[in-house]
Structure formats: C-alpha cells, structure tokens
Computed example of a mutant assay.
Amino acid sequence: MAKTAPLPQLDQLPGFSIRRLQQIAVALFLQETQAHGITPVQYAALQAVCVSPGVDQRTLAAAIGLDTSTTGGVIDRLEAKGALRRSPSEHDRRVRLLTATDEGQALARQVTPAMLRAQERILAPLPAKERKEFLRMLRVLVEANNELSRAPSSGI
C-alpha cells in the first residue's frame, strides 16, 4: 500500500487563515457598528456612492468587488433604509444611477468612526511598526490575485 503525504495543518494554510481573519473582521465591524444596523458590504457600497455620486450599479459592483446580483440586494437594503436613491440614467433607461440621500451621507459619517475602531482592533495584535508592512503585503496579494476573483475589483 502506497504511503500518502500527511494532510497539512489548517492553521498553516494561508487560505484558511485569510477566511478566519475575514470572519473576525466582520464580527469586529458588527460589534463596533451595531447601533447603526449596517453590514461591512453595505458600508462599502454606501461609502463608494458617497465618494462617487451618480455611479451606476455595475460600476459600483466592480469598484467594491461584488457580483452584480449581490450588489442589487445590497442596494435594495440601503434604499429601504433611506440611505440611497436610484434614478434612471438620462442616456440609458436600463441603467440605474445611485446617489446617497442626506440620511445616507449622515449614516456614512456616523458609522465611519466605529468602522475605523474595528480596523484598529483587527490590527491591534500586531506591533505598531509591523502594521503598515502587513497592510502593504496584504495589498500585494489582493492586487496580484484580483483577476482570479469571481468579482474582480476595479476600484472607484
């Protein structure tokens, strides 16, 4: 009987650790922002629309690295909260342009300090001098592998 290689330890696999860190990041975000009732993906969409008013849904999806159907649901929920408004494009009635309402802009401003606290908590276990290097290396991995994603990000 042929001897097989031992199975790797999960905690030694980058994919496993990245998935776990993403779970932790979401948990920290939700803890810090619970008073606002917004998810990390909703925050990303709202923030992107605040920065680029009049963006269409397809461009928004590409900017934040989501598939278009997921983005549609996110926009539905933000619209139901009164944070975003969809309006038809003057040039193509099939295209919906997104604008943050006054309430949506206020929500983004209110949530931002809590979101930043969550980011600080994610990095807190690292010594301060290593945080920038960790983020640099993380960006290298994300950018180098972006096209392999089911929803590559184009940035806004």
Results as ranks from 00 to 15, higher is better:
residue 1 M to W: 12
residue 1 M to A: 14
residue 3 K to F: 14
residue 3 K to I: 15
residue 5 A to C: 10
residue 7 L to Q: 13
residue 7 L to E: 13
residue 7 L to W: 12
residue 8 P to M: 02
residue 9 Q to S: 12
residue 14 P to E: 06
residue 15 G to T: 04
residue 15 G to I: 02
residue 15 G to C: 03
residue 15 G to V: 02
residue 15 G to P: 02
residue 19 R to H: 12
residue 20 R to M: 13
residue 21 L to E: 10
residue 22 Q to H: 11
residue 24 I to Y: 15
residue 24 I to E: 14
residue 25 A to T: 06
residue 26 V to M: 01
residue 27 A to S: 13
residue 28 L to P: 04
residue 28 L to Q: 02
residue 29 F to V: 03
residue 30 L to A: 09
residue 31 Q to N: 12
residue 32 E to C: 06
residue 33 T to P: 00
residue 33 T to H: 00
residue 34 Q to E: 14
residue 34 Q to K: 15
residue 34 Q to H: 15
residue 36 H to A: 05
residue 37 G to V: 01
residue 38 I to W: 01
residue 41 V to G: 07
residue 41 V to E: 09
residue 41 V to F: 05
residue 42 Q to D: 04
residue 43 Y to G: 06
residue 44 A to P: 01
residue 47 Q to E: 13
residue 50 C to R: 04
residue 51 V to T: 14
residue 51 V to F: 10
residue 54 G to F: 03
residue 54 G to A: 01
residue 58 R to L: 10
residue 60 L to I: 01
residue 61 A to G: 01
residue 62 A to S: 12
residue 63 A to G: 13
residue 63 A to K: 02
residue 64 I to Q: 02
residue 65 G to T: 03
residue 66 L to N: 07
residue 68 T to N: 10
residue 68 T to W: 10
residue 70 T to A: 14
residue 71 T to Y: 04
residue 71 T to G: 00
residue 72 G to C: 05
residue 73 G to Y: 11
residue 74 V to P: 02
residue 76 D to G: 07
residue 77 R to V: 08
residue 77 R to D: 10
residue 78 L to N: 01
residue 79 E to R: 06
residue 80 A to N: 07
residue 81 K to Q: 12
residue 81 K to F: 10
residue 85 R to W: 11
residue 87 S to L: 11
residue 87 S to T: 13
residue 87 S to V: 09
residue 87 S to M: 11
residue 87 S to H: 09
residue 89 S to I: 00
residue 90 E to K: 15
residue 90 E to D: 15
residue 90 E to V: 14
residue 92 D to G: 03
residue 92 D to V: 04
residue 92 D to F: 00
residue 93 R to E: 13
residue 93 R to V: 15
residue 94 R to D: 08
residue 94 R to P: 05
residue 95 V to S: 04
residue 95 V to N: 02
residue 96 R to P: 04
residue 97 L to F: 03
residue 97 L to T: 01
residue 99 T to L: 08
residue 101 T to N: 00
residue 102 D to A: 12
residue 103 E to I: 07
residue 104 G to E: 02
residue 107 L to I: 05
residue 108 A to Y: 00
residue 110 Q to M: 08
residue 110 Q to K: 13
residue 111 V to D: 00
residue 111 V to R: 01
residue 113 P to R: 05
residue 113 P to L: 07
residue 115 M to Y: 12
residue 115 M to I: 06
residue 116 L to F: 07
residue 116 L to G: 07
residue 116 L to T: 07
residue 117 R to Y: 05
residue 118 A to R: 00
residue 119 Q to C: 11
residue 121 R to A: 15
residue 121 R to P: 02
residue 124 A to R: 14
residue 125 P to C: 08
residue 126 L to P: 06
residue 128 A to H: 12
residue 128 A to S: 14
residue 129 K to H: 15
residue 131 R to H: 05
residue 132 K to P: 09
residue 133 E to M: 13
residue 134 F to S: 07
residue 135 L to Q: 10
residue 135 L to P: 06
residue 135 L to N: 06
residue 136 R to M: 08
residue 137 M to V: 14
residue 139 R to G: 09
residue 139 R to F: 12
residue 140 V to G: 06
residue 141 L to W: 15
residue 142 V to T: 10
residue 142 V to H: 08
residue 143 E to I: 11
residue 143 E to L: 13
residue 143 E to A: 15
residue 144 A to T: 12
residue 146 N to F: 07
residue 148 L to T: 14
residue 149 S to K: 08
residue 151 A to G: 04
residue 151 A to V: 05
residue 152 P to V: 07
residue 155 G to A: 04
